[in-house]
Computed example of a mutant assay.
Amino acid sequence: MNITAVHHVAIICSNYEASKKFYTEVLGFQILREVYREERESYKLDLCVGNTYQIELFSFPTPPKRISFPEATGLRHLAFSVSSIEEAVSHLQKHGIQTGSIRIDEITGKRFVFFQDPDGLPLELYEK
């Protein structure tokens, strides 16, 4: 096996328009492709994160809820690198997004903060 990188992260949302707006307008990800799959009653939105990574945003008619808190088994959170935590937090707050307090990683000494997408998916900003 020769894994060289992460290709994409797939997210299923409950409200496609709200999540599309959040990921494109608030977080600023660029749309690569948007497809409506009629047979599944589902949108698939491919988003570019920087120049390397992709997020696939899916919608389905009635997706089941996923337990996220407290510390459930599975994907814990999705983290994005930023150059300035203060600027990123200010940007999120201007868009009405609540964040946790800025914390320091006790192992690396780097600063980070948590927030959530419209479905409560835990997201993190990690200062480079």
Rank of each mutant, 00 (worst) to 15 (best):
C13F: 00
R76S: 14
R33P: 03
I85L: 12
L125Y: 11
T24S: 09
A79R: 03
D46L: 11
V49C: 07
I3H: 08
L121A: 06
I3L: 15
H8G: 10
I55L: 11
A5L: 04
Q30H: 03
Q98H: 15
Q93R: 14
V82R: 05
A5R: 12
E106I: 04
E38P: 00
N2I: 13
H95A: 14
C13Y: 05
T62R: 10
G50T: 09
K21C: 02
R37N: 12
I12H: 12
Q93C: 05
P118D: 09
E56I: 07
R33W: 00
C48S: 14
Y53L: 03
I3K: 02
F29Y: 05
V26N: 00
S83Y: 03
E17F: 07
K110I: 06
R40G: 01
F58Y: 14
Y36T: 01
Y43F: 08
P61L: 00
I85T: 13
A18T: 13
A72V: 14
Q98F: 11
R76A: 13
T4S: 14
V89F: 09
E39F: 07
P122Q: 05
R40H: 05
P63R: 07
G28R: 06
I11P: 01
Q93Y: 08
Q54S: 11
E127D: 03
T4E: 15
T99R: 05
G96N: 14
I104F: 00
I12V: 15
K128P: 00
I11W: 00
Q93S: 13
Y126P: 00
H95S: 12
T108A: 07
V26D: 11
A10H: 12
A5S: 15
K94P: 01
R66Q: 13
T73L: 15
I31L: 03
L123G: 06
P63N: 06
K21E: 15
P61T: 02
L75Y: 01
F115T: 10
P118N: 02
I11F: 05
L57N: 11
G50M: 08
I31S: 03
V35I: 13
I3D: 01
I107R: 10
G109H: 04
E124A: 05
T62K: 13
L121H: 07
G28E: 08
Y23I: 02
S42C: 04
E71F: 05
V49P: 03
